[in-house]
Amino acid sequence: MQAAFITESGPPECIQFGELPDPSPGSGEVLIKTEAVAVNPIDTYIRSGAIAMPRPDTYVVGCDVAGEVLEVGSGVDRFQPGDRVWGTNQGIHGRQGTFSEKVVAGAEWLYPIPNGVSSETAAAAALVSITVGLGLYQHAKLQSGETFFVNGGSGGVGSIAVQTAKAMGAKVITTAGSDDKAEYCRSIGADLVLDYRQADMDEQLNAYLEENGKIDLWWETLREPNLERTIPLMEKRGRVILMAGRDAKPVLPLGPFYTNDLSLIGFAMFNATSAEQLAVAEKINKLLANGALVPPIGLRLPLSEAAEAHRQQEAKTLEKSSPLLGKIVLSA
């Protein structure tokens, strides 16, 4: 099979594309004919060595996959050949990645693709929707009628968070850095979109909160979170989700934090069990099936251009130099 792989850490150019042996499913595993995969920031961190994780010597990059079941190993009863499936959580904890024409994955990490949903859509939604679902459903327990804020509503996580929170009945506030991105955020359900380029953004936000009530759940996506700014904007017993800023050491205004019964929540998707992720995936599938969740796709490439896909992802995530709106999806 053809695959995008590395044999050592390094820049995107270290990704090779060539022939590797076809994998075979073992007990509890499923062999998938890949139709679509998607790029995530964590893919680039693992490839570069910025995140140290155990991995095979010849390591196929990528976490997300969508495609058709070719074969199932012993003990698998949830799937059979011909089923369409999507999944994530590959390429980590020593598991092989997904940027290949055939992928073997544990059945516990796979979910059926709903009828009428494309493999592109399923792959684009995979990691980001599981991440958002874990945050909103499991960790923060967002309730209908609450006010939800997320930075960057047109981004990979942000766009899914806006749509999911809206489907859960929340009032949604987000930010954007261009007129096109702001319009997109409104089109997917954001009640208020703030232009973070504007000097009076905080004044606009405060005016809205004075009229509509403070924020119940704040989802922080910035690499340098400013908790001194965030805490005063929170409703009593509000929750702040932190899922960015590995090296950040923000100041925490302790007084207003504990006197308002606030909670800080930190989580990483790859710490969740397969059972926790399955429970979230079932909710995601309902949203995908009824059209309430449509991940934006900003760039489509063939699998052979995996190195370019990683360059584009780094330009967007690390360099902040890309106007790209949405996920990068590759087809096998």
Rank of each mutant, 00 (worst) to 15 (best):
K141H: 14
R95D: 04
F79R: 03
T131W: 07
Q143I: 10
A124E: 01
F99S: 07
P114L: 11
Y137N: 09
S129P: 13
A107E: 15
G106A: 07
S100M: 12
L142F: 06
T88L: 02
D77V: 14
G91K: 00
R78A: 10
Q90I: 08
G82Y: 08
V103R: 02
Q96E: 15
F79D: 00
G94Y: 10
K141L: 15
Y111V: 09
V76P: 02
G87I: 03
T98W: 05
Q138T: 11
E146M: 05
P112G: 05
G135R: 04
A124N: 03
Y111I: 12
L134H: 05
F99N: 14
A123S: 11
G91R: 01
W109I: 13
V103P: 02
Q96P: 04
F79V: 05
V128Y: 00
G145Y: 08
K102W: 09
L142V: 09
Q138Y: 14
V150A: 10
T121N: 05
P114V: 11
V103C: 11
E120N: 10
L134P: 01
V76R: 01
A122R: 03
D77W: 09
D77L: 08
V85G: 00
S129T: 14
W109D: 03
N115Q: 12
T147H: 08
L134D: 02
N89M: 10
V128L: 05
V104A: 06
L142A: 12
E101V: 01
V85F: 03
P114S: 15
S119F: 10
G94E: 12
S119P: 04
T121K: 03
H139V: 10
H139E: 13
A107G: 09
T98C: 03
G97Y: 15
P114Q: 15
H139S: 15
K102N: 13
F149I: 13
E146C: 05
A140D: 04
G82H: 12
W86R: 00
V128W: 00
T121M: 11
D77G: 09
D77T: 14
F79T: 01
N115Y: 15
V85L: 05
F79A: 06
V132R: 02
K102H: 10
T147V: 08
R95Q: 06
H139Y: 14
W109H: 11
Q80L: 07
G91N: 01
G106I: 07
